[in-house]
Design a binder for these strands. Structure first.
Length: 450
RNA sequence: GCCCCGUUCGUCUAGAGGCCUAGGACGCCAGAUUCUCAAUCUGGUAACACGGGUUCGAAUCCCGUACGGGGUGCCA
């Protein structure tokens, strides 16, 4: 490779209407590599397939690259707008005898004139192509395996391999970093580039992301769209950090760290070759760490969409930002996803207790002295001062009178008032955001169910 | 079927011939803490797929086997 050649990488997604986590990982690695060597990242939309050539299908790609903080330097270029370049390249190959026309039955046709109804096949020479892949080292493929492949369709459109090779050459791409599923088509791209007199890029094939069955993540079976992760309450920072660790790891072992540091540590040649399982449990851990690092203001902003969407269990008019703001500091440290806030505050916003039956059964039905605790608590709360400390002491005192410790004493009260055996610290929000009457009503309702 | 690629704890990884009685992280288990659940802290569990070489010495190099994955379209 010549010394002065500036590094140029490209992320070349096909518009599908969403950004796939695997694609996002590919984009991220391209970006990390470009940033780590001071190169340029190009975005190229591969929409040669007519059905994909629709603006709305590319929107999600822009939106989620932005969300992840992957800022490309050049583009977007649209492959569909480069049809003439592709046609010229094919014509040249035809003229040079490196390709030939064929009919619908794959019979070779004489002549070199491209026309509707005629496809063009690349005349694959005998020999072997050796790819010097940054990740996989040398990969040799015998041309006999390739056959004479189509580079121009009879409907007048270029195929993926042709468009890819031409565009990479035109855009002076030096490194093609992409998924391993494209490894087997690489010799074809190299052959086309060379036949066109271009130097193919250096390839780096990344290991695929797989599900628990060790299969390539698929749209059908798996949650693959970044949008769904965002909707489930994952932070972009956590997602990007986690994605960087799939197929690669920093030598110093520090996993959770700012992207700037990851850029500093990243080495393309250190990328692994084995497929990586996309582990949501680990992603959730990362997400929890990043959530804890936010200040309250930032967290409130991040959480807002999850409280105002239409999947929320309370009537929209009952949403109370002030109540949420008061509870958030109490629960921030245990949130693992942003939407985890909902079950922490729903009992303060819903008109009726969102009762979880298994909590009811565990803490109330099978709880120690539940009847006595509920009765005693009701009696105590009727006219005691309405502040958290007093109420808390009252509940514990009732429990103690029946030989029940604090943990077990608060359980039936918690379930009666919140509907769950788990939740935020109970007394402060309960006293501040529910009225005495409402709390008593809930306690009496619970008591009457027993 | 054929071609290509891969194989370190359950999972993600560190490891580029001696620093490895294989390190970290998630998970899991236990303890501490606690009004619940978490979070946090402490401790623990757990891996070089197998078989041959090469070498004084191999997780690291070579070969084979097994298993897994990807590809095999006028999809990308």
């Amino acid at each position: 490779m010549s010394l002065a050649q500036p590094t140029r990488v490209r992320f070349a997604p096909s518009p599908t209407g969403y950004l796939h986590v695997g694609s996002a990982r590919t984009a991220l690695f391209n970006w990390l590599y470009a940033r780590s060597v001071g190169g340029t990242m190009v975005l190229r939309i591969e929409d040669t397939d007519e059905s994909r050539n629709r603006p709305e299908l590319t929107q999600a790609i822009f939106e989620y690259l932005e969300w992840l903080g992957i800022h490309y330097d050049e583009g977007p270029y649209y492959q569909s707008e480069r049809r003439d370049r592709h046609r010229d390249a094919v014509q040249r190959l035809l003229d040079d005898g490196r390709a030939y026309l064929c009919d619908a039955d794959d019979n070779e046709l004489a002549g070199t004139e491209m026309a509707d109804g005629r496809a063009v096949r690349f005349r694959t020479p005998e020999g072997t192509t050796v790819i010097d892949d940054v990740v996989r080292r040398e990969v040799a493929v015998d041309h006999a395996q390739l056959g004479d492949f189509v580079i121009w369709r009879s409907d007048g459109s270029p195929t993926f391999v042709l468009a890819n090779a031409v565009d990479d050459a035109d855009m002076a791409i030096t490194h093609a970093i992409r998924g391993e599923d494209l490894l087997s088509s690489t010799p074809r791209a190299v052959l086309v580039a060379e036949a066109l007199g271009a130097t193919p890029p250096i390839y780096a094939h990344l290991p695929l992301l797989v599900n628990e069955q060790r299969k390539k993540l698929s749209k059908r079976r798996d949650d693959v769209s970044l949008e769904s992760y965002r909707r489930r309450g994952f932070l972009a920072s956590a997602m990007a950090n986690y994605l960087a660790l799939l197929g690669w790891g920093p030598r110093d072992g520090v996993e959770i760290r700012p992207m700037a540091e990851i850029i500093g540590q990243f080495r393309l040649e250190d990328v692994n070759r084995a497929p990586a399982f996309f582990d949501i449990a680990k992603l959730e851990h990362f997400n929890g760490v990043y959530i804890r690092e936010l200040d309250t203001e930032q967290l409130l902003v991040a959480i807002e969409p999850h409280l105002t969407g239409n999947e929320v269990p309370w009537p929209p008019e009952r949403y109370r930002p002030d109540v949420v703001a008061a509870v958030v500091p109490l629960v921030q440290e245990k949130l693992r996803t942003l939407d985890g806030i909902v079950p922490q505050v729903d009992w303060l916003l819903c008109p009726e207790v969102p009762m979880d039956e298994s909590s009811w059964d565990k803490a109330v039905v099978r709880g120690k002295a539940s009847v006595e605790i509920l009765d005693g608590t009701i009696a105590a709360l009727v006219d005691c001062p309405w502040d958290p400390e007093t109420v808390k002491d009252a509940v514990f005192a009732v429990g103690e009178a029946h030989g029940v410790n604090r943990s077990k004493s608060q359980a039936p009260v918690r379930v009666a008032v919140t509907g769950r055996s788990v939740g935020p610290p109970l007394f402060e929000p309960m006293v501040h955001h529910l009225t005495r009457e409402e709390v008593l009503r809930r306690l009496r309702n619970a008591r009457s169910r027993l």
